[in-house]
Amino acid sequence: MPEILLQYQDEIWRSIGETMVMVGVSIAAAILVGLPVGTLLYLCRKGQIYENPVVFSTLNLVVNIIRSFPFLLLVVFLIPFTRLVIGTAIGTAAATVPLSIIAIAHYSRLVEQSLLDVPRGVVEAAISMGASGKDIIFKFLYVEARSGLVLGLTTSIISFISYSTIMGVVGGGGIGDFAIRYGYQQFKTDLMMYMILVMIILVQLIQFTGTTIARKIDKR
């Protein structure tokens, strides 16, 4: 173990923990809110079972607007909202607010795309069998789109890691913030490189896991 890592091990572990919290909350937001929003985007589209131009255009616009922001500006823009929700705009907990919002917008778009890949005929067959809207979603659409949903979530998680690295601006901490403050700003280039290595390993692991699961559950 290089000495510099031993010297900073407390800070390193803490920053890894902060990253895990930020990314973990983002993943939860993506699944709990992003998945339903993406599904609604799909269902309200023209020609789909709950076709509704008003709901579709509104959601579509909101998702687009959130994704148009350079993420750093979104964080700053959301400070009043974050303060309202968490009580403070500073720290790891506060950092999860903008991260969750971008996570929802990011994953909902990928969910919509995965669902659009399900052949129309499958939905028609479901309707002809007397399936309700809920049945169509859970027994047909999600079953047929499941590997796309997993791959999309994998892509999203990797983006969340990337987004989380700049949360240092609001005192969110995390690996990225540690690498910048201790590695870059204090000219400890080797420390910065070790942190980049940690991120590379993390991303590789997530991508490998996601791809493997997606392949295993894809019987098409």
Partner: peptide, 21 residues
């Protein structure tokens, strides 16, 4: 209508099976 559809079966040229089932 959904109940009525359960007594009306339908098959298609492209089968439309759920490929992950």
């Amino acid at each position: 209508l959904r109940q009525a559809r359960m007594s009306i079966g339908m098959i298609f040229q492209q089968f439309h099976l759920v490929l992950n089932k």
